[in-house]
Amino acid sequence: MKTNIGITKENRQKTTDILSKVLADEFVLYTKTLRAHWNLEGHDFHTKHLFFEEHYNAIKKFADGVAERIRQIGHYAPGTMGDFLKLTHLTEKYEGENTSLGYSAALLEDHDAIIQFIRENISKVEEEYEDVGTGDFLTGLMQEHEEMAWMLRATIAKA
């Protein structure tokens, strides 16, 4: 059935293009956070193992929310690793040490990149594409990433 939510087909597509990039970034970040959880070593293993688990569970929910938002505005979400790797702004590679500081610094860069991308696109989605609902959704998502970035930044500063 045709999506008739008061946003033109063209604007819904432009919004979907942005959301698809956010979804790809979320999935890559989820995978990298899992890696940190699985491969972490060091004196702070237990606490950081749980910390990264909390983060990847939250990021998994973020990704699901982005995919559902894409569906709500009448499009299909990308869903293959190939799609995600073509769309992401992040690198999937990590060549640092398996320490909490190494992983935290790398993950912080990714959260900051996601925050910047979302911030650059919120007003475009709301004003140019006339999708205040997605703008509001992106604002909430950005705030979640800001909180996670703050936690990672505080972890690094503590060392």
Rank of each mutant, 00 (worst) to 15 (best):
M1F: 06
I5T: 09
I7K: 10
E10Q: 12
E10A: 12
R12S: 12
Q13T: 11
K14M: 11
T16Q: 12
I18H: 04
L19I: 07
V22A: 03
V22Q: 04
D25A: 09
F27Q: 15
Y30R: 06
T33A: 04
L34T: 09
R35G: 05
R35C: 00
L40P: 05
E41F: 01
E41A: 06
D44C: 01
D44N: 14
F45A: 11
K48G: 00
K48W: 03
L50E: 14
E53V: 01
E54A: 14
A58K: 12
K60R: 14
D64L: 04
A67T: 07
E68N: 11
I70D: 07
I70A: 09
Y76V: 14
A77Q: 10
P78H: 11
P78L: 14
M81H: 02
L85I: 09
T88H: 02
L90I: 13
E92M: 03
K93I: 08
K93Y: 03
Y94K: 08
E95L: 01
E95T: 06
E95P: 00
E97T: 09
N98S: 10
L107K: 05
D110T: 06
I118Q: 04
I118V: 13
I118F: 03
E120I: 00
I122Q: 05
I122N: 06
E127N: 14
V132Y: 05
G135Q: 02
D136H: 04
L138N: 01
M142I: 02
M142E: 15
E144V: 00
E144F: 00
E146D: 15
E147G: 02
E147H: 04
A149N: 03
A154D: 03
